[in-house]
């Protein structure tokens, strides 16, 4: 009996100090264990941290996956932890009809270099194994948890599980093998009616105790959208009114803020992660300029990002 071997593409986006564009294949060859799980190819995307947080970079990662989608069963992205959730959330929207496993992983910062190297190796092996499954999800794999990426949030503890999520977004756990929780998976064969693009002409505002309404309104001129992060604070009534007035012409998202919730033009969001909400907004305003349509799309689940 022979078992058909799967092909997995590893995209390197940084995370391991010793890896460079020229030595990526050699670094992977030092993990011969990977070859017994699948046929592995690799692409060096970039390791420059400053690039990892730009929409152009996210689209670059998504395009690398899309152009190779027919050849590979699954994709593993090695990525720095700090900006991973932005890239992973963006990919989950840009490729929400791909129907193949896309697994983000990397190296946890540990007390010792040895432990760090061990963790990236174990994470990578777990990720490659998951990338051979039939799993239409964009996930993060760290420690012993497989989590839907656009519902994940960072935790700061000694644990190797650097990301957590609500239980419904835990897609699998590692014990002696990988147990996938089928009931938490998205439906297979999503057909997207959207274009794979982002609009980054967004003004990002954090609610501060001190602000100047006149100065703030100047920042919104010419913007395709305004994203306000409330950080759980109350929004002063005059500021909410300003947003409401603005929202008659430009889409405005008010994320995680204590508000009256009564301004019908504002899009109030508190049921997804910050990274998901911001990237989703950039994705949605790239699809349509119709304010009602934008509001409707922001409030519905497009890639499993809504936390119920």
């Amino acid at each position: 009996m022979t078992i058909q071997r799967k092909k997995v593409l590893i995209l390197y986006c940084g995370s391991v100090e010793e890896v460079t564009e020229s030595n990526l294949p050699q670094w992977l060859q030092r993990m011969p264990e990977l070859d017994i799980i699948a046929d592995i190819d690799s692409v060096y995307v970039s390791s420059k941290l400053q690039n990892n947080i730009s929409p152009g970079y996210w689209q670059n990662v998504a395009e690398n996956i899309k152009k190779n989608q027919k050849e590979y069963s699954g994709f593993v992205i090695i990525h720095p932890v700090e900006t991973l959730l932005y890239t992973a959330s963006a990919v989950s929207f840009l490729l929400n009809d791909l129907n193949k496993p896309i697994i983000f992983t990397g190296s946890q910062k540990q007390d010792t270099e040895k432990k760090s190297q061990l963790s990236v190796k174990a994470n990578l092996i777990n990720s490659v194994q998951v990338a051979t499954f039939i799993l239409p999800e964009v996930c993060v794999m760290f420690g012993n948890k497989l989590i839907r990426a656009n519902q994940a949030h960072r935790v700061y503890s000694y644990s190797l599980n650097v990301f957590e999520s609500p239980d419904s977004a835990v897609l699998g756990k590692i014990d002696f093998s990988i147990r996938i929780f089928e009931k938490n998976l998205k439906k297979v064969h999503v057909v997207s009616r959207f274009e794979s693009k982002l609009n980054n002409n967004v003004e990002y505002v954090k609610i501060q105790p001190v602000f100047n309404i006149k100065e703030m309104s100047q920042r919104f001129v010419g913007k395709a959208g305004v994203f306000v992060e409330g950080q759980g604070h109350s929004v002063p009534q005059d500021l909410e009114s300003l947003f409401s007035k603005l929202a008659t012409k430009t889409p405005v998202v008010l994320f995680d803020a204590k508000t009256s919730g009564a301004e019908k033009n504002i899009i109030y969001i508190d049921n997804m992660t910050l990274e998901s909400a911001l990237v989703k907004f950039m994705y949605v305003i790239a699809q349509t300029k119709d304010l009602d349509e934008i509001k409707k799309l922001m409030q519905m689940s497009l890639a499993g990002e809504v936390i119920y």
Binding site: M1, T2, I3, E33, L34, I36, I37, A122, I125, N126, Q129, T132, F142, G143, N144, K145, Y158, S159, L160, N161, I174, D175, F176, S177, I178
Partner: peptide, 30 residues
């Protein structure tokens, strides 16, 4: 809670792969 897998708690692994499974390769790799 510590992010460790159960395999890490073991001293060694024995696999009977007379019947093939993709899981065998994964366990050996890990």
């Amino acid at each position: 809670a510590a992010g460790q897998t159960l395999l890490e708690q073991m001293d060694s692994l024995v696999i009977d792969a007379t019947i093939k499974s993709p899981e065998n390769g994964y366990l050996v790799a890990l």
